[in-house]
Amino acid sequence: MNREEIEEAISTHLPGLSVQTLTSLLEVLEELGVESRADLVLVQENDLVKCLRPIQCRKLLNGLKNEPLAGRPWYIDFRVRWDRMTASIRKALSNQARPSPGDRKYMVRAVVDQMFEHDLNPTRAICHSIAWSIVRDYPKCFADVGKKGDIVGDGSHSLLQQIKARVEYKNRKNTLARHRREKRPRTAVVEGGRLMARGPVDQYGCVRWSPTELPSGETMESLYEIKKQLSNIYSEKGMGGAETAEALMEKTYVIQRQYLNSVPAPTVAEIQEEWPFLFSQRTDVAFLDKMQEAINNKGSTIIRFCQELSRHPSIEEILAKYEPETSDKAVCVLLLLMAYFKEPKTSIMLETD
Rank of each mutant, 00 (worst) to 15 (best):
D113R: 13
V112K: 06
R81D: 15
S88H: 03
I76M: 07
Y106P: 00
K105C: 11
S100K: 08
Q96E: 08
S94E: 15
W82Q: 02
A92D: 07
P122M: 06
S94F: 13
A110C: 11
W82D: 01
C127L: 11
M107G: 07
A125E: 15
R90L: 08
I76R: 09
M115S: 06
A87I: 09
A97C: 12
S100P: 03
R98E: 13
R81A: 15
R84G: 10
P99H: 05
Q114V: 02
P101D: 07
D113P: 02
D77C: 06
R104D: 04
R79E: 09
N95D: 15
I89T: 12
P99Y: 06
I76P: 01
Q96R: 12
S94Q: 15
C127Y: 09
H128A: 15
G102F: 00
L120N: 14
F78P: 04
M107W: 10
T86R: 06
Y106I: 04
R79H: 05
M115W: 04
I126S: 10
A92M: 04
H128Y: 13
D119L: 14
M115C: 10
S94V: 15
V108E: 00
S100A: 11
L120P: 05
V108F: 01
D77P: 05
V111Q: 02
V108I: 10
P122A: 05
Y106Q: 07
R98I: 12
I126G: 06
P101A: 08
V108A: 03
R84N: 10
K91Q: 10
I89Q: 09
D103L: 00
S100G: 09
N121K: 10
G102M: 00
R104G: 01
S94K: 14
R104N: 04
V111K: 02
V108M: 02
S94Y: 07
T86W: 02
W82M: 03
K91C: 06
R90K: 12
V80G: 03
R84F: 07
M85A: 13
L93N: 07
V112E: 11
I126N: 09
M85D: 11
D119E: 15
L120G: 05
R79W: 01
M107H: 07
N121S: 15
G102Y: 00
R124P: 11
K91S: 11
M85K: 08
D113H: 12
R79Y: 03
D83W: 06
A92E: 02
F78R: 01
Y106S: 08
D103H: 00
N95S: 14
T86F: 03
H128W: 14
D77Q: 11
E117Q: 14
P122Q: 05
R109Q: 02
